[in-house]
Amino acid sequence: MNQEELDPSIDRVLNSFDGAEKAKPQPYILTRIQSRLNARATAGFWGKTSAFLSRPIVAGLGLFVFILVNIFVLANNPNPKTPASMATTTVSNYEFAIQVSSLYDIENQEP
């Protein structure tokens, strides 16, 4: 296709919206809008809350805050349990441990 043929075709396409009528929606749109409004009005507190929480941005933000709080708590723990203190606890637990007999030991006691 040469330039002389091209220009009229391009102009024809660019002007193809000329004389276009406005597209019309399906009838009874007002009734459907009113039913949507009624549904929103009767959604109640929990309906509105769950709709709000299920928004991707709210859910994402909630998760982000949760992770941030966890990081903050871990980073600022005033009394962290070091492996050494945990080891001491374990040793003292063993000292006070009571030997628990199994059912076999209870039933077959040697004289």
Binding site: S16, G19, A20
Partner: peptide, 19 residues
């Protein structure tokens, strides 16, 4: 296919929408 476009311009309008 826009419902308001004139019949003889529908093909051209389709190209214009894509562009």
């Amino acid at each position: 296919n826009h419902p308001g476009i004139l019949l003889d311009k529908k093909d051209d309008a389709r190209i214009l929408f894509a562009a």
